[in-house]
Amino acid sequence: MSTPADLRAALAHRLTADGTLTEPAWADAVRAVPRELFVGPYFVPVAGSFPTSYRTVRDSDPDWLDGIYSDTTLVTQLDGRTSPDDVPDGTITGIPTSSSTLPSVVLRMWQQLGAQAGQRVLEIGTGTGYSTALGAHRLGDTGLTSIEYDPAIAAAATTALKTAGYAPRLITGDGLRGNRDGGPYDRLIATCSVRYIPLAWLHQVTPGGRILATLSGWSYANALALLDVTGPGEATGRFMSDPASFMIARSHDRPPMPTLDLLRGQERPTRIDPAALDDWTGGWVAQLAAPSAIRTGAGAQQILWDIATGSQARTASDSDGGWTVTQRGPVRLWDKVEQSIQLWQDADEPHQGEFGITVFGGTQRVWLGSEAGPSWNLPI
Rank of each mutant, 00 (worst) to 15 (best):
Thr3Gln: 07
Thr3Pro: 05
Ala10Asn: 14
Ala10Tyr: 15
Thr20Tyr: 07
Leu21Ile: 08
Ala25Leu: 13
Val33His: 07
Pro34Ile: 10
Phe38Lys: 06
Gly48Ile: 04
Gly48Pro: 02
Phe50Cys: 02
Arg55His: 08
Asp71Gly: 01
Thr72Asn: 01
Val75Glu: 01
Leu78Lys: 11
Thr82Leu: 01
Ser83Thr: 13
Asp85Pro: 06
Gly90Arg: 00
Gly90His: 02
Thr93Ala: 12
Ser98Cys: 12
Thr101Leu: 09
Pro103Asn: 09
Val106Ile: 05
Leu107Met: 06
Gln111Tyr: 08
Ala115Thr: 06
Val121Pro: 08
Glu123Lys: 09
Thr132Val: 10
Ala133Met: 11
Ala133His: 11
Leu134Asp: 11
Gly135Asp: 11
Arg138Ser: 06
Thr142Gly: 11
Glu148Ser: 09
Ala154Cys: 06
Thr158Gly: 04
Tyr166Ile: 08
Ile171Gly: 07
Thr172Tyr: 05
Thr172Asn: 01
Gly178Trp: 09
Asn179Cys: 10
Gly183Glu: 00
Trp201Ile: 03
Thr206Tyr: 12
Thr206Glu: 14
Thr214Leu: 01
Leu215Phe: 00
Asn222Asp: 05
Leu224Arg: 00
Val229His: 13
Pro243Asp: 14
Ala244Cys: 06
Ile248Gly: 02
Arg250Val: 01
Pro255Phe: 07
Thr259Arg: 06
Leu260Ser: 09
Gln266Met: 10
Thr270Val: 15
Asp273Thr: 10
Leu277Phe: 00
Asp278Thr: 05
Ala290Val: 07
Pro291Cys: 15
Ser292Cys: 02
Ile294Gly: 07
Arg314His: 05
Thr315Pro: 04
Ser317Gln: 15
Leu333Phe: 10
Glu338His: 03
Gln342Asp: 15
Leu343Gln: 09
Asp346Asn: 15
Ala347Gly: 11
Phe355Pro: 09
Gly369Met: 11
